[in-house]
């Protein structure tokens, strides 16, 4: 019936597809199957780069930080895996857009590969999508926001700074 997945939503989708035209079909198919359950290794790299910016000031400092980021990546992957197939497909398209260099540059405005991107560059990308007038980019921002925020605040390690004691014993 009505098909309107992440990439195909409206005008923005057309722009994005034009930009992504150089993506080989095989890569697109791979993204489809990678999103079949949790995050692919390429998706994990993206989340690992974005999470410390999304959660600036919330993650522990020093050595504990890498562990916290890894736990957020795992949490996001689990959350994606628990979504129904249609949502997984849409998230797969969002991550494909961020994974692949041409669309990362064009649509996210991040010039270097994710592990090398600066905090400022990533924050600018998030802010641009958040304040964009295109529904597609705003919804992409909110998907990342909700997945990453949920993955962190589900963990007991995030609770002490909130002065949240955790659930009571029954």
């Amino acid at each position: 019936m009505r098909r309107r997945t992440f990439l195909k939503a409206g005008v923005a989708g057309t722009v994005l597809l034009a930009g992504a035209a150089r993506i080989p079909a095989a890569a697109a198919r791979a993204a489809d199957s990678m999103a079949a359950r949790g995050l692919s290794s390429a998706d994990r790299v993206v989340v690992a780069a974005i999470a410390p910016v999304m959660l600036a000031g919330a993650l522990p400092a020093g050595e504990a930080k890498a562990k916290a980021v890894a736990s957020v990546v795992d949490g996001v992957s689990q959350a994606v895996a628990g979504m129904p197939p249609a949502t997984r497909r849409e998230l797969g398209e969002l991550f494909m857009l961020l994974d692949l260099a041409p669309t990362r540059r064009l649509v996210a405005g991040v010039s270097r590969p994710w592990p090398e991107a600066s905090v400022g560059e990533i924050a600018a990308f998030l802010q641009a999508w958040r304040m964009s007038r295109l529904a597609l980019l705003q919804s992409g921002y909110h998907a990342l926001h909700d997945l990453i925020v949920a993955a962190w605040y589900a963990q007991p390690e995030s609770w002490p700074p909130l002065a949240y004691p955790g659930p009571p014993e029954v």
Partner: peptide, 24 residues
């Protein structure tokens, strides 16, 4: 609760975290 509240609140990074630190 932390997850639902955190997802609902606006913003990201330092601004969002500052709101979360007022959780209680």
């Amino acid at each position: 609760h932390p997850v639902l509240y955190g997802m609902t609140l606006q913003g990201f990074g330092a601004g969002h975290t500052a709101l979360m630190h007022e959780f209680a």
